[in-house]
Design a protein around this nucleic acid. Structure first.
Length: 738
RNA sequence: GCCAACGUAGCUCAAUCGGCAGAGCACCGCUUUCGUAAAGCGGGGGUUAAGGGUUCAACUCCCUUCGUUGGCUCCA
């Protein structure tokens, strides 16, 4: 006998070996028909698997809690998607017999299956054929049959199937389970933990979405597999709604809107990942910067400015250079010896004759190649080399001053702190700068404004006494919240990025100081009652941080604001202040950037507002629309009044009909239009048209202007387009045990 | 960096099997002077991303490079 406790609290007896389907049937025939799977003791299990077997390991004398899943339950959707992934794999194997399967898990919005297709790579052109084959499998409605094998026989079984990735996975990880489960569906058998829908016919609407490469087990030294993405729903309507959402999201992709609304551009000639801000985008960005600057004054920050480059030694001291050499632009090399420099410059520009070269070589104490035979086996003379060779030779013989495009602002700010004696009375010192930094991101990573090679951080560095850390940390968190709230960006999550003590990148992470730093952050987050995830290994190399993560309109997650606690750099730079005891003490640093990167923030903001910026951010706040040329003079005087009131206004003086002017202004997402015709010109009024609410009728010019100004200065937000719909919180990483 | 797809006028996209590079919008000119989401007519605009190859002939087929997109990997 087995005791089952149902969600309504009732407890019933069932025979040994009963399945969830039996339980469902005992409740009602319709439930049994609609059932997809079940949750037993908190675990999703197959509908036709004996309950006691499925929860093996959680054996208890208490009644087993069981809940039947139907198409309405979120857990059932995951089961469906996983089964659909199997059906897709089966279809692919039918069409491409040599294909080998790797992992095929579900994601937050669908599923994928990693496959290796040795004959020829799959492409999206194959999707119709694969989808048609999948439809056949659904129509055949064969059951998913579960069976198990001991590890050694399981290994032999997948070996027989020629599934080499499955063999490797058993050898690497699965052997420890002892017994492995398989699911058979007609001719198709896959090693799989399950659970699955009972029959293929239970699968609903599906669609294959994209295909891309992905490394086997995520390791760059392993083979590149092909990842086929798809999604599935029980109901075709839900699938269509999902696909419609994807289409909607694409419409407000910041890369598309940025071009349409002339906010920014990226020129191949300037370089990939290097953003050029057009006037409208620059206006918005400038408003954001001024908004924050004003806020910083009231919060006790001081402005600083620092250059875009710094000596490499600076970054060797800070530790940035050794750790991030690969993701930086090459160094700028300047020959230390002025004669060597003149020689190199002359060679590069081709404006130097042989005599002068000889002279400069001597002055720079660079021996001719002949004289350095021991080093150069060729033994040929300097003048036997071509220009490139000469440059290379000179460069190999001279010392350089090396400069780095700055990848971070902190070392520069640290030098300002260190430039004068500091007393505990001065702390905390808060240096703020919109500092532009350059990082050589991998070419495949570049994406619009969200991943770029040159970007501006709204950076600041706080130098404080240890006892001030928590208070300052909290204040910076609050600043970041204030900034996000001011923009109506409420859909973010917090991540405590911690060290991974086993990774040498985190200096002294096992030590007390890191522990303390992480405890400090945790304490502040708890005190502020902010929920957060902890992410080991995500810390900066110099300290743990609290990151604000938002999703863009197509669901990708980006780190925006960040607050970082740093005990390492003050140590590396030997920073000190004089304490009340008249002894030197080491300050603690807080790095923080509420926007994060202005580029990335703008990208997210464009999508957040779908390009329809609120009045206070709109690059053009008001457009004056004269109905005909007859009122052009009055329209111009209205424009002047608007500008005198400090508003950003333009006039549409084209000889177009008013409908066309309105349409164009709407499409350009101008928040307010002042329509003026003969009537308005006669009594000094305007016809007020709002982007959202439409025609609001006549207002006196003064009233109209103050209405706009009030909305602008109050930074009112009336219209946002929510980013990707909220997702169920997912554990980091996939759960494809097998 | 890796895998794949893609790159045609400022933008969105056509161009059959390899056979004269086109449309709408935008832009310029003229006409129209108009009341809340598109007036009419005319005109200019292209080394089809760049370079190379095959061919009588290449937007179209092949190769290389650059870039973009979707992912993987990376992200101070």
């Amino acid at each position: 006998m087995v005791l089952i406790k149902l969600p309504d609290g009732s407890v019933r007896d069932f025979e040994d070996g009963s399945t969830p389907r039996d339980v469902a049937a005992s409740i009602g025939r319709r439930l049994a028909e609609q059932a997809i799977a079940a949750v037993a003791q908190g675990r999703v299990v197959d509908l036709d698997r004996p309950i006691q077997d499925a929860i093996d390991g959680d054996k208890t004398n208490e009644p087993i809690e069981l809940r039947i899943l139907t198409t309405k339950d979120r857990e059932a959707l995951d089961v469906l998607r996983h089964s659909t992934a199997h059906i897709m794999a089966r279809a692919i194997l039918r069409l491409f017999p040599g294909v080998k399967l790797a992992f095929g898990p579900t994601t937050a919005t669908g599923f994928y299956y990693d496959v290796d297709s040795p004959e020829r790579p799959l492409s999206e052109n194959d999707f119709p054929a694969i989808e048609a084959e999948m439809a056949k499998i659904l129509a055949a409605d064969e059951p998913f049959d579960r069976f198990t094998l001991p590890v050694d026989r399981a290994r032999a079984f997948v070996a027989d199937l020629g599934q080499t990735y499955k063999i490797e996975h058993i050898d690497d990880e699965l052997y420890k389970y002892g017994v492995l489960s398989f699911y058979r569906q007609g001719e198709f058998v896959d090693l799989c933990r399950g659970p699955h829908i009972p029959r293929a016919g239970k699968a609903g609407a599906f669609k294959l979405l994209s295909i891309s490469g992905s490394y086997w087990k995520g390791k760059t030294d392993r083979p590149m597999l092909q990842r086929v993405y798809g999604t599935a729903f029980f109901d075709k309507k839900e699938l269509d709604a999902h696909l419609a959402r994807i289409e909607e999201a694409k419409k407000r992709d910041h890369r598309k809107l940025g071009k349409e609304l002339r906010l920014f551009t990226i020129s191949n000639l300037v370089g990939p990942g290097l953003v050029l801000w057009a006037p409208k985008g620059a206006t918005i960005r400038g408003i954001l910067e001024n908004f924050l600057k004003d806020e910083l004054v009231s919060r006790g920050y001081q402005p600083v400015y620092t250059p875009h480059i710094g000596r490499i030694e600076l970054y060797q001291t800070s530790g940035h250079y050794p750790y991030y050499k690969d993701s930086q632009f090459p160094t700028l090399k300047m020959p230390a010896d002025p004669f060597a420099k003149e020689l190199v410059d002359g060679l590069v520009s081709g404006t130097i004759d042989d005599d002068r070269q000889r002279e400069l070589l001597a002055k720079a104490h660079i021996p001719d190649r002949e004289a350095s035979k021991g080093v150069d086996e060729s033994g040929s003379k300097y003048f036997d080399l071509d220009i490139k060779g000469r440059i290379a030779y000179v460069e190999s013989r001279c010392e350089f001053e090396e400069y780095l495009l700055k990848p971070m602002n902190c070392p520069h700010h640290i030098q300002i702190f260190a430039s004068q004696p500091r007393s505990y009375r001065d702390l905390p010192v808060r240096f703020a700068e919109f500092g532009t930094v350059y990082r050589y991101e991998q070419s495949g990573e570049l994406s619009g404004l969200t991943r770029v090679r040159g970007f501006t951080q709204d950076d600041a560095h706080l130098f404080c006494a240890p006892e001030q850390v928590r208070g300052e940390f909290r204040a910076t968190m609050e600043l970041t919240q204030f900034v996000l709230n001011s923009l109506g960006l409420a859909d973010y999550r917090l991540r405590l990025s911690k060290s991974d003590p086993s990774d040498p990148k985190f200096q002294g992470a096992a030590g007390e100081i890191w522990q303390k730093a992480e405890a400090d952050i945790r304490a502040v987050l708890d005190e502020m009652e902010l929920p957060y995830d902890e992410a080991p290994g995500e810390a900066a190399f110099y300290g743990p941080k609290a990151d604000f993560i938002v999703r863009d309109c197509i669901g990708r997650q980006w780190q925006l604001g960040t607050v970082q606690l740093d005990y390492v750099l003050p140590e590396r730079f030997g920073l000190e202040y004089t304490g009340p005891d008249n002894h030197p003490h080491r300050p603690v640093m807080i790095h923080r950037a509420p926007f994060g990167s202005m580029e990335r923030f703008m990208g997210i903001l464009i999508e957040h507002f779908a390009g329809a910026f609120p009045l206070w951010l709109a690059p053009e706040q008001v457009r004056v629309l004269p109905i005909s040329d007859k009122v052009l003079d009055y329209a111009k005087s209205v424009l002047e009044s608007l500008r005198n009131a400090g508003l950003r206004a333009e006039i549409d003086a084209r000889p177009e009909k008013i409908g066309a002017k309105i349409r164009d202004a709407q499409l350009e997402k101008i928040p307010v239009m002042f329509v003026v015709g003969v009537k308005e010109a006669e009594n000094g009024s305007v016809s007020f048209r709002d982007r959202v609410d439409g025609d609001l009728g006549p207002l006196s010019l003064e009233q109209a202007i103050s209405r706009v100004r009030d909305e602008s200065t109050s930074r009112k937000i009336r219209q946002t387009a929510p980013l990707a719909p909220a997702l169920p919180s997912e554990p980091e990483g996939e759960k494809h045990e097998y």
